[in-house]
C-alpha cells in the first residue's frame, strides 16, 4: 500500500467526518451518545490547549478558562434569558479576556514558570469562586445551568450531538485556518526560536498574547458547552483533573499537530471507558500515567506519528539496515 501523506490526510478527514455524522445511527444507546458529546467537547478543549502549545507555551491551568467560560455563560444565560447557544460564545469571550490578563503576566516568562503560574491561577480562580464570588456562583455547592435543549423536545439528544459536532468542526477548522495564516507561522517561529523570530520582525509578546486569547476562548467554549450539556456546574471544574486531561490527550495524540488532540481524545476515551468496564478505578489513572510516560519517551510525536514509525521499522527490517537516526 502506498499513500502520499497529503492523500492520507484528505481521505482520513473525509472518513472521520462520515463516521462522526453517521455514528448516531449505529447506536440508540443514550449512554454512548452522551459519551460522544462529552468526547467532542474534550476535542475542542484539547485543541485549545494545543493551540497554545503551538506557540511554545504549555499551560497546566487550562481548567481556569474552561471553568470561567462555563460560569460566565451560565450566569449570562440566567440573568439575560438568552439561549445557551448564544451565551456559550459570550462566556468564552469572558474567558478570552481573562486569558489576556493572565497572558500578560506569563508571556515574558520561561516555559516552566508559565506552567506554574497557570496552575496557580486555576487555584486562585477556584478560591475566588468559592469565597468572594460565592453569592453569585453558589460557592462549593454550585448552581444549575440552563440546558442546551429542553429534554422535552423529541430527539433532543440527537440534535444536541449534531450541534456540538458542528461547533467542534468549526473550532478545529478555525485552528487549521489560523495555523495556515501569518499568525500561525508566527506562532511556530516563536516556538522554534524566539530570537530568530524577533530578528524576522515578529513581536513574540503580541503573538503569545494572541495565542493565549484564542486558546482561552476555545477552552471557554468547551467549558460552557459541557456545562450546558450537563445542566449543573460546581467549582470542581477548576480542578487539577480538568487541567491535566487536555495535556494527556494532546501528548498521547501528538503535540503540535492538528490531528493530535482529536486522535488522542478519541483513543483515550475508548481506553478509559474500556478500563471502566473492567471495574478499575484508581488503576485506570495508573495505566494512563504509564502510557503517558511511555509515549513521551518512545513516541514523542504521539499516536499520529505511529503509521510513519511503523513504516520506518518495516522498511528497515526489509532492507536489514542498521537503524538510522530518524528525527
Amino acid at each position: 500500500m502506498h499513500f502520499k501523506k497529503d492523500e492520507m490526510v484528505k481521505y482520513g478527514t473525509v472518513l472521520a467526518l462520515v463516521i462522526a455524522i453517521t455514528i448516531p445511527f449505529a447506536t440508540d444507546s443514550m449512554f454512548i451518545l452522551n459519551l460522544l458529546v462529552l468526547m467532542l467537547i474534550f476535542i475542542i478543549f484539547a485543541s485549545a490547549w494545543n493551540l497554545l502549545a503551538f506557540s511554545g507555551q504549555g499551560s497546566l491551568g487550562h481548567a481556569a478558562f474552561f471553568g470561567i467560560g462555563a460560569y460566565a455563560s451560565t450566569l449570562i444565560a440566567a440573568n439575560s434569558g438568552m439561549s445557551p447557544f448564544i451565551t456559550i460564545f459570550l462566556g468564552a469571550a469572558v474567558a478570552a479576556f481573562v486569558g489576556i490578563l493572565i497572558g500578560l503576566t506569563c508571556v515574558r516568562l520561561k516555559e516552566w514558570f508559565l506552567a506554574m503560574v497557570t496552575f496557580g491561577f486555576a487555584i486562585i480562580v477556584q478560591t475566588l469562586t468559592v469565597s468572594v464570588l460565592a453569592p453569585i456562583t453558589g460557592g462549593w455547592d454550585g448552581i444549575a445551568s440552563s440546558r442546551l435543549l429542553s429534554p422535552s423536545i423529541p430527539g433532543y439528544q440527537l440534535i444536541e450531538y449534531y450541534a456540538v459536532l458542528l461547533i467542534t468542526i468549526a473550532s478545529v477548522a478555525a485552528i487549521w485556518y489560523i495555523m495556515k495564516t501569518r499568525i500561525g507561522l508566527a506562532f511556530l517561529a516563536i516556538r522554534e526560536n524566539e530570537l530568530e523570530a524577533r530578528a524576522a520582525g515578529i513581536d513574540p509578546v503580541r503573538y503569545r498574547l494572541l495565542a493565549f486569547a484564542l486558546s482561552a476562548y476555545l477552552a471557554g467554549v468547551a467549558g460552557a458547552l459541557q456545562i450546558h450539556h450537563i445542566g449543573y456546574l460546581t467549582p470542581e471544574l477548576y480542578g487539577v483533573d480538568n487541567s491535566f486531561w487536555p495535556v494527556t490527550y494532546v501528548i498521547l495524540g501528538g503535540l503540535g499537530t492538528l490531528a493530535g488532540p482529536i486522535v488522542g481524545t478519541i483513543a483515550l476515551t475508548i481506553i478509559w471507558e474500556g478500563l471502566k468496564s473492567t471495574g478499575l478505578t484508581f488503576g485506570r489513572y495508573v495505566i494512563v500515567g504509564v502510557m503517558l510516560i511511555l509515549a513521551i519517551i518512545f513516541l514523542p510525536r504521539g499516536l499520529v506519528s505511529l503509521p510513519e514509525q511503523v513504516q520506518g521499522w518495516l522498511k528497515r527490517r526489509k532492507r536489514k539496515e542498521p537503524p538510522s537516526g530518524t528525527g
Binding site: 504549555g58 497546566l60 491535566f244 495535556v247 494512563v288 502510557m291 503517558l292 510516560i293 513521551i296
Partner: peptide
C-alpha cells in the same frame, strides 16, 4: 515541557 508532561504521568 517534556519534563513537565512526564511529571503529570508520574503524578497519575
Amino acid at each position: 515541557l517534556n519534563e513537565i508532561f512526564l511529571s503529570i504521568g508520574l503524578i497519575y
